[in-house]
């Protein structure tokens, strides 16, 4: 009997890591009292997850905001600093960042715990999950580049028109804490607040709706799902292809470890054969086993199923 199946709270450790990372990202607690933001040197460094740098608590930068800002500096300067950061984080952790190190992911998961009827995943959600790549292409890349080349000023399209993390962590607290910004509120704040409220409400019924359908940072990290050094992997020798892992998963995964997998590792506890594990690429214990990515090439039983509708 696998020890993991006996765990009463299999997600407890991950929740602790999510909470600690959210606190570390937003360690400037005095900012929430004063209504000001942290201005130290650490702000030149990005955190891996989505966390608005205009949040009063934020002690570092948001990688998406920094990327859009860097794209706005083109063609004079290439966005190499942030590109290098995203490459290294993506290669090292991939979407583990989504599962463990994203405060907005934690907020969505907590909202989903509110009891009530839940939307089941299916073909509709799998199709909708492609939307985040369009958001990445249009709002994160095209709009900042368009404005940089034509108007000559920065416009972070995603931050300005969509980002619910910016509204929730930055906009609402700053407007509530200081009177400076209240006279400046207009249609944009109304739009962003309404969109943020709609997304948060949707998250009560639909697991991690923002991550699955809209988050461009998750889209970036999903490009690394086949090469990430640390990932959830399947021991092909133990896997009997029952498909329980993908059926029970709340994300739109077709295979453990694919582009939609946030690497939360909960499937380790649902697998009756204990075939799923977290591992480095050179894990001696499992060195003869093929990884999920290799399974995806065709042979593995874990690769066989489509998205089973719950």
């Amino acid at each position: 009997m696998d020890k993991r199946k006996k765990t009463k709270r299999p997600d407890f450790r991950r929740k602790c890591i999510q909470l600690v990372s959210a606190l570390l990202y937003n360690a400037n607690l005095s900012g929430f009292a004063s209504g000001t933001i942290y201005k130290g040197d650490l702000k030149g460094v990005c955190v891996p997850g989505l966390n608005c740098y205009s949040c009063p608590g934020a002690v570092a930068s948001c990688p998406l905001g920094a990327l859009q800002n860097a794209l706005s500096a083109m063609p004079n300067k290439l966005p190499l600093y942030i590109a290098g950061f995203l490459l290294l984080v993506g290669l090292g952790l991939g979407r583990i960042v989504c599962g463990f190190l994203c405060p907005f992911g934690l907020i969505q998961e907590l909202l989903y715990k509110i009891p009530g009827r839940k939307l089941k995943k299916g073909r509709w959600s799998r199709r909708l999950s492609w939307l985040k790549y369009a958001v990445l292409a249009v709002f994160v890349a095209a709009i900042p580049l368009w404005y940089a080349y034509t108007a000559g000023y920065p416009l972070p399209g995603f931050c300005k028109y969509i980002c619910p993390a910016g509204t929730l962590e930055g906009g609402i607290p700053l407007v509530a804490l200081g009177e400076t910004y209240r006279p400046l509120i207009g249609w944009l704040f109304t739009w962003k607040t309404a969109l943020c409220a709609a997304i948060l409400l949707l998250c009560v019924f639909c697991y991690r709706a923002f991550c699955r359908f809209l988050c461009p940072l998750g889209a970036i990290y999903s490009f690394f799902c086949r090469v990430a050094l640390v990932a959830v992997r399947v021991d092909e020798g133990k896997c009997d292809g029952c498909g329980l892992c993908t059926r029970k998963c709340l994300m739109d995964v077709e295979k453990v470890g694919d582009r939609e997998c946030i690497q939360c590792g909960l499937c380790r506890h649902t697998c009756p054969r204990g075939a799923i594990y977290f591992g480095w690429e050179r894990n001696k214990k499992h060195e003869t086993e093929t990884t999920v990515s290799d399974n995806a090439a065709g042979a593995g039983p874990a690769a066989s199923g489509g998205v089973p509708e719950q």
Binding site: G44, Y81, F189
Partner: peptide
């Protein structure tokens, strides 16, 4: 990155 992040991003907060 630092120069952008130490100022409140008006776009980010929706203003």
């Amino acid at each position: 990155t630092l120069a952008k992040a130490v100022r409140i991003c008006m776009e980010c907060i929706g203003i």
